[in-house]
Design a protein around this nucleic acid. Structure first.
Lengths: 338, 338
DNA sequence: CGCGATTGCCGAACCGGTTCGACAGATCGC
DNA sequence: GCGATCTGTCGAACCGGTTCGGCAATCGCG
């Protein structure tokens, strides 16, 4: 492989001149610049990333820490990853993907060894063990998901509280007075999935304010358990006219349950979900839903992170906690109750 | 951050001694080794990855080139990615994930700049434009998916031909004489998805050999089109007693179609799919299927790649094309025909 | 006791870039 | 015509590791 020394020799200049000619960081005569460029082209010169990283202490790589859980919908994670990766690339960065179970150790490894200029953390738990590591790390980071303590962090998440209120308000306005909310399984909460109770608590409170009866239950994450649960709930609360789903598995299972029961949506039951458009497409879900926008969140986190990485002034700006406001995508699955 | 110079000074030895003490590549007295280890611990020393890469010309990073298509099931890609990432980590490597649309250019970029020690290419098309780049690259690679020309490549794939034969044989042995095979949409073939016709052609031929009638059609990749197609086919070939699915979307849509038609599996219709166990779990599919084993394929590709990367003798071994033999996972969805 | 082999450490070079200071030659103003 | 400024290039140092050759001090052995 050709080094910058080879290029310099071929162009008849010194290494430093070759470097300046290629980077344009100092004035170089047009004639020399051309000779160097030509030599670089002819030798198929590509700078050695390690050497450059060593000299500039910039790797142009961002770490991406994904966290997988058995009971979570893998494609959702995929959407985050794609958004982060694509946005990073348009900003000139590559992605070091880390799927290690021990996220804290992995984070320490890639930041301490200077493999990355910054990190994006996905699937943040309420008391995420990676966060202390991130705060102490020599590299900036961006978290997707809301932890209990946001100090010293840039945090990006959907506004799940508002999502809960929007769901309740929407059905309340249509005249519904008794609703069912199916959340993720309770163990997701125990694991630190704060978004579950954030949406739930806000919905419960808003329902109380509006005089709406809300049956809030924790669901299951798999078939056939989640199908059975749907049936049980619909049997238990026959007078409920609206169903809110903060549970992907339940949303995916609902069409067949509804069909089996001869239940028409929205004539007999109004339905609002909370998931990503990609999820809706994969399962062909015919329900109105709150878009959880993994692509926007991922992209936002990366842009913010890169700003901090690249600008010394941005590096010292105060940390931000930024919420995406929930957007209700209508698919016609809500109506005035019978 | 502490450098090895800091560690050496703290331990009262030279940089080279510190290096040897930490790597163990030369004999070092136990006492000095301890002093150095202690100093490294105290200073929280972590070697600078760029510097090490420069010195050793090894980055301990593998590139992973994923290719996304609208009509493909994203979670499947996710399974490959996880398998590759997890296997790489157990072997001491990190993963540079590249999702760029222009895969050939991305591949050139990461190999020429020496960011990675090797690359794994996913979703290989029949005439994949990344392959010429890989062959010319200064780094070894492993391809998952079978291209038309395997020369100069290590290739790993499911044996789709055998999968087609296994499907046909299984139902033939049970007594079935008329089958339907739904493949991926035809445009997947045009894009270079060779696995589609590889399974199809082998199934067609085996059916001919066995005297079985096989209606082989290209399917759709989305609801509701794929649901309509299923209904049409079942109407068109009412005497068919077996259904073979090399099409994830069709498999996912089948349960509700069957229920709507009052079709019992396997009493009225025997069904065999071809997908991953993860896909089966996500959609709770109750069908026997040929496991497409993305985890095994990904893991295998990485292990082979790492062997080539690490051993100079392995580097010159002949290239391999390795097929995983299809495994039929029984879920009781096949039986003797009416 | 003397000599060669072994052990344990050090100094220096190297990997391949970037960047700072210096300097020669051209240009300018007065 | 001379000093000051500007322009374009070079040499050297540096980033932070690894590794080779060399050199004492110690050891084993006849």
């Amino acid at each position: 492989m050709a080094t910058i020394g080879d290029v310099a020799r071929a162009a008849g200049v010194s290494r430093s001149t070759a470097s300046y000619a290629l980077s344009g960081k100092r004035a170089i005569s047009e004639e020399v610049r051309q000779r160097v460029a030509e030599a670089a082209r002819a030798l198929a010169y590509t700078p050695n990333a390690g050497a450059r990283a060593l000299a500039t202490s910039q790797t142009m790589v961002l770490g991406l820490l994904a966290q997988f859980y058995e009971d979570e919908f893998a494609p959702a994670m995929m959407q985050y990853i794609r958004a982060v990766s694509d946005t990073a690339r348009t900003l000139g960065y590559d992605i070091l993907l880390v799927t290690e179970a021990d996220g804290a150790r992995a984070l320490r490894r890639i930041t301490d060894s200077r493999m990355v200029d910054g990190v994006v953390l996905l699937n943040i738990a309420e008391h995420d063990e990676r966060l202390p590591v991130l705060r102490a790390a020599p590299r900036p980071g961006a978290s997707v998901g809301l932890p209990a303590d946001c100090s010293g962090l840039d945090v990006f998440d959907l506004d799940f509280e508002e999502a809960g209120r929007v769901m309740v308000d929407h059905l309340h306005r249509l005249g519904h007075r008794e609703l069912i909310l199916i959340s993720q399984p309770e163990h997701v909460v125990h694991r630190g999935g704060a978004y579950v109770w954030r949406l739930r608590d806000a919905a419960v409170q808003r329902a109380r304010e509006r005089g709406v009866t809300l049956h809030a239950v924790y669901g299951e994450s798999r078939q056939p358990a989640v199908g059975r649960l749907l049936n049980t709930l619909l049997d238990t609360y026959p007078s409920a006219t609206g169903l809110l789903l903060n549970n992907e598995a339940a949303a995916a299972a609902l069409p067949s349950v509804a069909r089996a029961r001869g239940l028409r949506v929205p004539e007999d039951l109004s339905v609002i979900g909370r998931y990503s458009d990609d999820f809706a497409a994969t399962f062909s879900l015919p329900y109105s839903f709150i878009e959880s926008a993994p692509d926007r969140l991922g992209s936002m986190a990366v842009r913010h992170l890169v700003r901090r990485v690249e600008s010394t002034t941005a590096r010292d700006e105060p940390y931000v906690v930024r919420f995406i406001s929930p957007e209700l995508v209508s698919r016609g699955s809500t109506a005035v109750p019978r």
